[in-house]
Amino acid sequence: MTHPSNEARERPLSDALRLAAHGVPVLPLSRTKTPFKNCHACEQNLCGGRPNMKQPGPCRCPHPCHAWAAATKDPAVLTSRAWTLAWEQATAAAYHPGGAWLTVVDLDDADAVAWARESLPPTRTVPTTRGEHWLYLGPMRSANAVRPGVDIKSRMSYVRWLGPGAGAMAPLPDAVRALAEQEETTSAPGEVVSSPRAAAVWDSSVATGCRHTSQYVRTGLGRGVAKVRSHTESGAGSQAFGVARFLAKQHEQCPGPCGLDALADVIVAAAMSVGVPEPYARRAVANGLNTASGRAA
């Protein structure tokens, strides 16, 4: 068995300390390139959440819990005993762009990069495995699936550190802000956005090739719908994208068909119930399903 060298283990922390010295809040990423799970005291957000989250809470946990909300510029925290284990297991450092007064346009494939070059002002770019990160000066709200292969990472989000990139950073343009504004949030009381069609029923008749039990699928769907409906003020469309992507990934090893269209209808209906317009809800869910399967919507 091969063990990572001391240099490999220390590099994420070195990157983090260097970024923090320049005023960029940072956090460690696990082997799955995601933030570390919450500790037992913070599981299911029982602690109330970090004070800098959308819903301020009382959490003062010394561990790197709550993903992007744990990001810090404090070297004493970054090198503390509570964070040491995470850095020893980390494969990369990430940063909170909104906390650094930045917005990152995450372009996930060649088509998205081509679109950005035609539609957005040039700015600093960072190559990624499949596309590019475009960095702009100025924060805004984050939003996933604003168009095929394009996510916006700023407030309430994190971005993996892949290097400084090249080029001068341009001010955040209205064209990027407009992408997130496509998702209208909760409508005014009494206003009707649109009426969802009756959601299809998910059962064995539409999922003849699914390897999961009905209880397993419906439990996961129920939890996802609850997450979407909890976003009553903003972000329901982005949450619908995430739920669709997560559910689709659970079926990657199934021979199929798995009746994902029926699941999609339920997620769309949940997003519409908290004010997301139907066209945006359907696009977000379709992009979530297609992202999980490696296709662009």
Rank of each mutant, 00 (worst) to 15 (best):
S187H: 14
V77W: 05
A292H: 05
P189F: 03
A20N: 13
G235H: 03
C59D: 10
C39V: 09
T34L: 12
E184A: 14
G98C: 07
H231G: 00
L29Y: 08
S230D: 10
M272Q: 14
P28F: 02
T34I: 10
E184P: 01
A41H: 14
P139K: 08
R160E: 15
A114P: 05
P279E: 13
G49A: 09
A296V: 12
L172Q: 01
R211A: 12
G163I: 11
G99R: 01
A200H: 02
R147P: 02
D265M: 05
G224D: 06
V266G: 00
L221K: 09
V192I: 12
V113S: 12
K249Y: 03
E181P: 01
L137W: 00
P75N: 04
A67G: 04
Y95M: 07
G235A: 04
F36T: 07
V243K: 00
K249Q: 13
Q253D: 15
G149T: 08
V206D: 11
R50C: 07
L247M: 11
K33I: 07
Y95S: 04
R245G: 03
S157G: 03
C254S: 14
A69W: 11
R160P: 02
A270E: 00
A180W: 04
V206L: 07
R124W: 02
C39N: 10
Y95H: 06
G149N: 12
M156D: 12
N45H: 14
P12A: 15
P28H: 06
R18S: 15
D109W: 05
P58T: 15
L17S: 10
G99H: 03
V105A: 03
A175P: 05
G138K: 00
V192T: 14
A198Q: 13
L78N: 07
V24C: 01
C42I: 10
K249M: 06
R50G: 01
C59S: 09
Q44K: 14
P196N: 03
R81K: 14
A270K: 00
C59G: 06
W115P: 00
W202R: 01
A199G: 00
R245W: 05
D265S: 15
G242W: 03
E118G: 04
A292R: 03
Y216R: 02
T208M: 13
K54S: 09
E191F: 13
L46E: 14
C47R: 12
S30Q: 11
A92D: 12
V225A: 01
E43G: 07
G23R: 02
D111K: 14
H212E: 10
T123L: 05
A41D: 14
T219C: 03
P64T: 01
N52Q: 06
P148H: 06
T232C: 07
L13A: 06
V26Q: 10
C59R: 10
